[in-house]
Design a protein around this nucleic acid. Structure first.
Lengths: 150, 150
DNA sequence: TCTATACTAAACCACATGGTTAAGTATAAG
DNA sequence: CTTATACTTAACCATGTGGTTTAGTATAGA
């Protein structure tokens, strides 16, 4: 099973879904090893906001941070983006209508089409985005469901 | 400016950040044109939950839906994923250390490194993920900020 | 030693997300 | 015409997100 890769893809794509984080990555592409303050300077948001974005990028493995004295240098990494590209390449092959390659490719079983199952460990900590299982409703709250129209 | 492409990238990467949605796309890669019920059948969540995921995929332009009678067929599309691949390819070139190509590439100005600016129209509708500007606090609520440690 | 800088952490907020159940609508089948 | 199926919509919930301000810590510079 490639669930661990799935979680890595979750974080990679989630990290890339925000324009500020893509701009941060692009900035590091121009000039790797910038400090946090240098990275944050052109952005119209506060430094703690940029810090949060860098946290997301670090958790996704897209950057690494190394502290020297009081400054932290941020650098791009390669691995998780390669995995995202792999996924996109597979998608590209689906709609290219090359059915022979497609059939052979699907039968490699490297492509999880079965629905994601939430990890049975760490139920108290939300480990994945899609989660099944009913949420507990506090007493006295109204249950979900559409009210009749009348 | 390529802000419109940026918003499309927002939606594309956000759509891909969820494992259920990626599984839906993979399922359609195996067999295009499945109906909503057929798509939903293997998933352990409710039909409206799958409907919501399909809404996200449709808004991102990754699938199209066409109704025939009472069933809706879902099909993969190509365009937005190509744009996501373009972005990833550029990132790949950054860490491949090809500085000549990198410099020439950056100077094409097709790669927005400047911080994203939220659209000045549609302030009432949240159009982009990163947004500046202070939120209004209700009267009587405590202001943000860390409490002193003592 | 004191001051300044760079970064980190906490607390708050409005809004978004991903699920649920229940009701409603459109269309096909009997 | 009635029933069943496929899908849609509304209302709810817990949690997460992306921002803010304020306080705190670590390190460099004067």
């Amino acid at each position: 099973m490639v669930k661990y890769k799935d979680e890595a893809l979750d974080r990679t794509f989630a990290a890339l879904s925000d324009p500020t984080r893509r701009a941060l990555l692009a900035r590091l592409g121009e000039q790797d090893g910038l400090s946090v303050s240098e990275l944050a300077a052109p952005f119209p948001v506060s430094l703690p906001a940029i810090m949060k974005h860098l946290d997301v990028l670090t958790d996704a493995g897209l950057i690494v941070r190394e502290k020297t004295g009081r400054t932290v240098a941020c650098r791009l990494t390669a691995r998780p983006m390669e995995q995202a590209m792999d996924w996109l390449n597979r998608y590209a092959q689906f709609w290219s209508h090359n059915l022979d390659r497609l059939t052979a490719f699907v039968e490699q079983e490297t492509w999880p089409t079965q629905p994601p199952t939430p990890p049975n460990a760490q139920q108290s900590v939300q480990a994945s985005r899609s989660r099944a299982g009913s949420a507990r409703r506090p007493k006295g709250s109204t249950p979900p469901g559409r009210k009749p129209r009348n």
